[in-house]
């Protein structure tokens, strides 16, 4: 049966800039999704626990601090340990070009940088996902 997309939005680490993630949360809500807002200063462990308990389809992480190459791999590793391979992960924020390929290779489905339109994010999430290999 068709059910609304459930997505957890979180910020990991010490980055305290939450305007962007709140704007995205609003847009996804208005697009009919159920947005679980986990908020600021989350540990990777807490985010993965939230994903599991909320039975989410997606995780959206926002990082503007430059810590993405430390924190995102940690989240991916914990997701694997928690048998959450079926959950898609997208990252938004300031991610240098050189790191995009690395994160994508690790399993991040999509990275949205500055200037991304909200329609683009909504459109991406609403496109049916190909099953992971």
């Amino acid at each position: 049966m068709d059910h609304p997309i459930r997505i957890v939005l979180a910020k990991v680490g010490l980055d305290g800039h939450d305007r962007g993630i709140k704007v995205v949360a609003r847009a996804l809500r208005d697009a009919g999704m159920h947005v679980i807002y986990a908020g600021l200063w989350q540990t990777p462990e807490a985010v993965v626990r939230t994903l599991a308990d909320e039975d989410a389809d997606w995780l959206g992480l926002s990082l503007l601090s430059g810590a993405h190459m430390t924190l995102v791999p940690r989240v991916l590793e914990l997701m694997k340990q928690a048998n959450l391979d079926n959950v898609g992960i997208m990252v938004g924020g300031i991610i240098p070009e050189a790191d995009i390929a690395k994160l994508t290779a690790m399993g991040v489905a999509k990275i949205f940088g500055p200037g991304t339109s909200l329609d683009e994010i909504v459109g991406f999430l609403k496109t049916p996902r190909e099953p992971k290999p």
Binding site: A25, L28, G39, T50
Partner: peptide, 16 residues
């Protein structure tokens, strides 16, 4: 829209 912003748990502390 059928959408929802579920914003309770972030006030409950993040526990593992």
């Amino acid at each position: 829209s059928g959408g929802a912003l579920l914003g309770d748990r972030f006030r409950m502390g993040s526990s593992t």
